[in-house]
């Protein structure tokens, strides 16, 4: 009788631990998400997003957005991967003390195995690890027999209805925020890089709100 009671107890504990595992993986290591649009909408319900700026496009016009006048273009020829530079698929801007980057990740060109082109979460994890190599160990957890890959992401939605995945990583002393939104054959990746908690993300948020995908 007491034996049965113990096994039941163990079962309950095991179940609780197993249920907790994915939760333990969640919770970003790098800090809070400044680009969280839902959070921004909640805090600035009366604020309207600025409509002035320069209309820009990447990925043959499939991705369009508006850059506010406060942002300055950075010479990004050497900064982006050669393919992204050659195809004019990426742009980098200085926004006060922070950097704002946007680029188109072409699944056909960058994903090694064709069958994996639909594995959005895994692709996003690979993009994060590629840009911030130290994040790789944070996204990986080894059990005795299996390697597990966590992706502690959060979601938000722009006023235009685009869904974003967010991840906050680190590169040296800089916080690197990622925001991903899917396109037809790839992913639109947004980067926000800064090293000061007081950094304002209003201009970056404004670009994300203006983003349109064909």
């Amino acid at each position: 009788m007491s034996m049965r009671f113990n096994s039941k107890k163990i079962l309950v504990i095991m179940l609780a631990v197993l249920l907790m595992l994915p939760v333990m993986g969640a919770g970003s290591s790098g800090g809070k998400v400044k680009l969280d649009l839902d959070d921004y909408h909640a805090k600035n319900s009366s604020t309207t997003i600025g409509t002035s700026g320069t209309e820009r496009s990447i990925a043959d016009g499939d991705i369009t957005f508006r850059i506010p006048d406060s942002m300055t273009r950075v010479d990004d020829t050497e900064i982006f991967n050669k393919h992204i530079s050659d195809e004019k698929d990426g742009e980098m801007y200085l926004d006060g003390n922070a950097l704002f980057g946007i680029f188109y990740f072409d699944n056909d060109y960058f994903v090694d195995v064709p069958e994996e082109k639909d594995e959005t979460n895994a692709i996003e994890r690979a993009i994060i690890s590629n840009i911030c190599p130290s994040e790789e160990k944070r996204l990986k957890w080894n059990s005795l027999t299996l390697r597990h890959y966590f992706y502690p992401t959060s979601q938000s939605k722009s006023l235009a209805g685009l869904n974003f995945h967010h991840y906050v990583g680190k590169y040296e002393n800089f916080r690197v925020e990622f925001a991903f939104t899917p396109t037809d054959k790839g992913i639109c990746v947004i980067l926000f890089i800064y090293n000061h908690d007081g950094t304002k993300a209003d201009a970056a948020i404004s670009v994300m709100e203006s983003l349109r995908i064909k």
Partner: peptide
């Protein structure tokens, strides 16, 4: 939260 370990190419 187990995802496959995906490799990128041309990077």
């Amino acid at each position: 939260a187990k995802f496959l370990d995906l490799e990128l190419r041309n990077v």
